[in-house]
């Protein structure tokens, strides 16, 4: 299953809720303001890191670049482009969009 999160974890609890519901082997893709959840050294970094062993966490690279935070992405997060987004959706069955 693919989960997408498009809101900042500082703004809404969508990322927290998503991570709590993600099962082993699921994929979480952070997009739009959701990419703030992909950053290192924030209050939410530990929460994301704790899930990285069992859940694959990805972030949309153009959204990181737009916000000037590409260099701050947490190591181990896979960066994808729009084509990669489509591939993730095609390969991972149903998509749950956490708004």
């Amino acid at each position: 299953m693919l989960h997408t999160v498009n809101k900042s974890p500082f703004e809404r609890n969508a990322l927290k809720s998503c991570l709590e519901h993600a099962r082993d082997g699921d994929v979480v893709l952070l997009i739009e303001d959701g990419v703030i959840g992909a950053l290192d050294n924030t209050e939410f970094t530990a929460m994301v890191k704790a899930k990285m062993g069992t859940v694959k966490i990805c972030a949309l690279a153009p959204d990181l670049e737009a916000r000037g935070v590409s260099s701050k992405a947490l190591a181990g997060i896979e960066l994808v482009d729009f084509g990669g987004f489509v591939d993730l959706a095609a390969e991972n069955g149903p998509v749950q969009a956490w708004l």
């Binding site: 690279a61 153009p62 670049e65 737009a66 916000r67 000037g68 935070v69 590409s70 260099s71 482009d81």
Partner: peptide, 8 residues
């Protein structure tokens, strides 16, 4: 933030 690049 510095270095915002929105072309993508």
């Amino acid at each position: 933030m510095k270095e915002q690049k929105t072309d993508g």
